[in-house]
Amino acid sequence: MNIERIQRDSPSTAKRRFRLGYDKTTGLLLISPWLVGFFLFKLLPILASFGLSFTNFYLLEPGQTRFVGLENYARLLEDEAVGFLIVATISTAISTIPLQLVASTLLAALLSSPRLKARTALRTLFFLPSIIPGVAILFMWFGFTDPNIGWLNRFILRPLGLTGFNDLYSDAAYALLIAINSLWAIGPGMLIMLAAMQSVSSEIQEAARVDGAGPLLRFFRITLPLITPAIFFALVINLIAVFGGVILLDRGSTFRGGASPFDSYITYWIFERWQLGYAASLAWLFFALVMVVIVILFTTSRRWVYYPDRGD
């Protein structure tokens, strides 16, 4: 009896028994809420959208729907707005993302300095604009940039001798506003960088300091290369925001109707023209564009992102 008991509880049996608890079926069951949600709210709609893009589906006459082949895609090529919007989306990305990355890296570096007083409070206050709702931000810019009484003209541009922000809706002014506004969404990126900087080994820093490397040299030669994974992560996050995805808050819905100009154009075809077939082909073009950018990003990341050997 005794021997039997010992055998039953021996490590190998125990191991086998606990392995039974960690099987793939239980794993699948546990992640099934997400899996079901993925099929219902992501995969099926994406496929349905793809199917829809080959039809002339018009919301007011659903009965007239028929297969039109590549007609919608041919129309895309002739639609002058499409090329313009692709360029606009890319230029938004170019004018905001590098700015956001530099600002969040710099801010994280400054806020991780041991010389700083009240570090947590300062981090919170710099993070604060990232949780202000999009509606409030829209209202703020509307007043702040008012040509006559807004503070931008009265207290920043005019005292600096600049002519002023007379037309909020001119393209240049709008681009500038988008760039400035993007600085108010760097919170998550900044926190990721902060975390990465904290995990940079202080021994390496100390060794470099002993060898006579100044703070700038140490930042560019040690910290920066070691936090490239965090920079890459922040880059992806900012890119998603430009393309209308959501990480922290959905800021896009209030800013000129969509997160990106392309976004608003698709919304326009859905809710103002009700031509869902054409809107679906637009959405799919946009989707393809996003995927191409993401794939390019991930394939080139190996060249500049530092991947340490991970134990697990």
Partner: peptide, 22 residues
């Protein structure tokens, strides 16, 4: 599946909007 889940964050809402709304 984990990477697939991460990838779903990257899907723009407009691609799923039309069928979902309908």
């Amino acid at each position: 599946l984990f990477y697939l889940m991460i990838a779903t964050i990257l899907i723009p809402e407009n691609v799923t909007l039309i069928p979902t709304y309908y």
